[in-house]
Design a protein around this nucleic acid. Structure first.
Length: 467
RNA sequence: GGCGCCAUAGCCAAGUGGUAAGGCAGAGGUCUGCAACACCUUCAUCAUCGGUUCAAAUCCGAUUGGCGCCUCCA
């Protein structure tokens, strides 16, 4: 299995630190709003990475934090005139709802920044002791010059960074590139006690501390959006490796952005769509499928037309799977019939599975993996009919479900329970068709369509599903 | 100014040295009372220029265009 490692800028063979186990840390959301579909990309992508690792029998410990104290949260709380905790707890809940909708497996642990302050203070103290950090007027800064490898993740060197520094130099700092570990309390803001007076932690220290506490000094995979490479992840490396004297993360994975009109979608630019908005019109399943249609290290453009195209594609997979299930109900033979034996099905199915795995092993090429599913679907559509055997159909269904399952793609259409009223109407329509009263038959079909029930007259009888 | 990424059919998108996967949309056909589904057929030489090679979308160089990071940000 190969993973593209931002640290080395190349694809590397994946070898976990401890055999059979993977420790993974993904930077989680700052909870001050509903997530937008840009936020959904890392969620979906790294959940898929996890699912594939688990499919390969790794025991994955997956940690994803909540940044539940931050300038933006405070700002929003002040705007709404409520306590910051009301904001953070509300949007944590909403995040988990979207997360579940997107078929993201819950993290092993979701640590919250505000519950880890003691640990952060301890690490900051250690950094000061070891000479990597210094205190000025209640603020504590990390002195980047003291950490020699600083810049190794983002391929920057201190001189370039200083030359490019656009922020007005904070006179408190010894060096413009130093970053804050602890900031003093401002009037009206929440604060915690510390050896440097009341205040709150800087953003970067959170992740270093939570990763250490729940995963240990060295982890296998650290992931997040590409914008986190610098400064966030660079700073995490500096903090963690300065304290632990060990490599912090072996592999660093970063997803590219979701764009609108080829421009980055972000809360600050205001050109974003929330996941909820899209779910209203399409569905969580379509969003997930849409995201996985593009390799995670390529930018992906978002538009109504593109997501509609993805919805149509997903429908193709689901329709095929539905048809198979329908055939299975009527299938008689238990063992392969002559035609099926000729097809050498097992070997044929192996081909799609191999293509799928090969794609996934190559830095999680989900786009290519999905094409294997489409090829499997084509094979199924082409080679099954009412004469197919149970065994033949079941084998295909199992494989479709397995492959879709790894990607977290829902392979079945959502159905409601058989409603007698609907069945009555369908029978009525069948009678009308027999009587060649097509006007009535079409009216019944149209009426059902208005209620969201789509009828299809297949060779094997009338079928219906939610539109 | 520094660092990095990208350019494949109407649209989306794999492919990183051996002659272009897959999906959406479109066209023609089969099936069907009609429709839908499905199936069959059809639809590109890979931004431009130059180079390396028996062989390049794939490597090198240049040009043009686009994007990201260097500041909160997935």
């Amino acid at each position: 299995m190969k993973i593209y490692n931002t640290l080395t800028n190349k694809k590397e063979a994946f070898e976990s630190i401890e055999e059979g186990k993977v420790k993974m840390y993904v930077c989680g959301p700052t909870v001050y709003n509903y997530i937008h579909i840009g936020n959904a990309r890392p969620l979906i992508v790294f959940d898929t990475v996890r699912k594939y690792l688990e499919y390969k029998n790794y025991e994955v410990t997956f940690v994803s934090n909540f940044t539940d104290i931050d300038d933006k949260i405070i700002k929003k709380a002040n705007e709404e005139g409520v306590d910051y905790r009301e904001i953070s707890s509300k949007y944590m809940k909403e995040f988990l709802i979207d997360s579940e909708g997107l078929n993201v497996k819950p993290a092993t642990i979701y640590p919250k920044a505000t519950e880890e302050i003691d640990g952060m203070i301890k690490v900051i103290e250690q950094l000061i002791e070891k000479g990597y950090a210094y205190e000025v007027n209640g603020s504590v800064y990390f002195e980047t010059k003291k950490f020699k490898p600083y810049g190794k993740l983002s391929n920057k060197n201190q001189e370039d960074l200083e030359a490019g520094a656009r922020i007005a130099v904070d006179t408190e700092k010894r060096n413009p590139m130093d970053f804050v570990l602890w900031k003093p309390k401002k009037e009206g803001e929440p604060a915690w006690k510390s050896p440097w007076g009341e205040g709150r932690p800087g953003w970067h220290i959170e992740c270093s501390v939570m990763a250490k506490k729940y995963l240990g000094d060295s982890i296998d995979i650290h992931a997040g959006g590409e914008d986190l490479v610098f400064p966030h992840h660079e700073n995490e490396i500096a903090q963690s490796e300065a304290v632990n004297d060990k490599q912090f993360s072996k592999y660093w994975m970063h997803n590219r952005f979701v764009n609108v009109d080829n421009k980055k979608m972000s809360k600050s630019l205001g050109n974003f769509f929330t996941v909820r908005e899209i779910v209203d019109e399409f569905s969580y399943d379509v969003i997930r499928f849409f995201m996985l249609n593009v390799h995670y290290r390529s930018p992906i453009n978002f538009s109504r037309d593109l997501i509609q195209a993805a919805a149509n594609g997903l429908e193709r997979i689901q329709t095929s799977r539905d048809n198979l299930e329908h055939l299975l109900k009527n299938a008689q033979q238990d063992d392969y019939n002559e035609k099926e034996s000729m097809l050498n099905e097992e070997k044929e199915l192996e081909k799609y599975k191999t293509k799928f795995e090969t794609a996934m092993e190559d830095d999680f090429n989900t786009a290519d993996a999905i094409s294997a599913i489409f090829e499997l679907v084509k094979f199924a559509n082409k080679n099954t009919d009412s004469d197919s055997s149970n065994k033949f159909i079941e084998d295909i269904i199992i494989l479709i479900d397995e492959l879709c399952g790894i990607l977290g793609i829902v392979s079945k259409k959502k159905k409601i329970l058989l409603d007698e009223e609907i069945n009555d109407l369908i029978e009525k329509r069948q009678q009308a068709r027999k009587d060649r009263d097509f006007a009535l038959a079409d009216k019944i079909r149209d009426d059902l369509k208005d209620k969201g029930i789509i009828l299809e007259d297949t060779r094997e009888g009338v079928r219906w599903h939610r539109g």
